[in-house]
């Protein structure tokens, strides 16, 4: 089988083969994101039962929790790409890291924002300086610092290596956010979902949250692929295949 050979997988490390491949994948992930969002929001807003303590205000959870998960997950994925780029010197891994950063920052901001809106009715305040909120805010600063450093360096090679190193230094923050509710006694509630035990919430709530997570995941992939295509065109604009592609488009 061709799929099991090393060459089959390594060919996608070349921007030239990855560009059309990403183009074919985008509609699938975008479609999946749209479909899952509709299903997830329907389940979350209409099917899931009313919470006995919080009433209907808890329903923002279906956006808040997946966004917070994605904000951390995207940072880790970005770091893996950055590390691959630093170690193997592959241009595409670094472009992927760069393409993921704005989406990650968006999800971090979304998690903070929905958290503030959720905090108002349940805690009585938009913001508290609790460990999880503060560390999530640091994550937002890390994303912004990554993008700022990248934008400040003109030489693309140095920009990719420097920002990659910065991303790796910042990765220590991710476990701190994840475990902050266990390590510190905070206002933010503990995790209701874990891989090892049954969720402490109604099954429909859990399903809706999971569907929304996959929706955000598909969205992140679609947007990152779209962005990486643009980055490829920008960085490889002197390559012959890009010039030929531009000729065809004209």
């Amino acid at each position: 089988m061709r799929v099991f050979t090393k060459e089959f997988w390594f060919q996608f490390a070349s921007p030239k083969t990855f560009y059309p491949f990403a183009g074919r994948l985008i509609p699938w992930f975008a479609g999946a994101a749209l479909l899952l969002t509709v299903v997830g929001l329907y389940l979350g807003f209409f099917v899931a039962p009313v919470d006995y303590q919080q009433g209907n205000s808890y329903r923002i959870m279906f956006i808040h929790v997946p966004a917070a998960w994605m904000s951390m997950f995207i940072y880790v994925v970005m770091c893996v790409y950055a590390a691959l780029g630093l170690v193997l010197n592959t241009r595409l891994s670094d472009m992927m890291a760069a393409a993921l950063a704005p989406t990650g920052a968006m999800f971090t901001f979304l998690a903070l924002w929905t958290g503030a809106l959720w905090g108002r009715p349940t805690w009585g305040t938009y913001w508290v300086w609790d460990a999880r909120l503060t560390s999530e805010l640091i994550l937002l600063f890390l994303y912004l610092g990554y993008m700022a450093l990248r934008a400040a360096i003109d030489d693309p090679r140095r920009a990719s290596r420097a920002s990659g190193l910065l991303a790796l230094v910042g990765v220590v923050n991710v476990p701190i956010i994840y475990f902050s509710v266990q390590w510190w006694n905070t206002l933010h509630q503990g995790a209701s979902v874990s891989l090892t035990s049954a969720p402490t919430m109604a099954m429909t709530m859990f399903t809706a949250m999971l569907v929304m997570t996959f929706a955000f995941w598909a969205y992140a992939i679609a947007v990152a692929l779209y962005r990486v295509r643009l980055i490829i065109l920008e960085r490889e604009r002197h390559a012959r295949w890009v010039v030929e592609l531009a000729e065809q488009e004209r």
């Binding site: 600063f141 890390l142 610092g145 400040a152 910042g170 701190i176």
Partner: peptide, 13 residues
């Protein structure tokens, strides 16, 4: 300014 943006988040802990 960039240095401040990169370093201050790491200083927070």
């Amino acid at each position: 300014v960039l240095l401040a943006l990169l370093v201050l988040p790491l200083y927070i802990p």
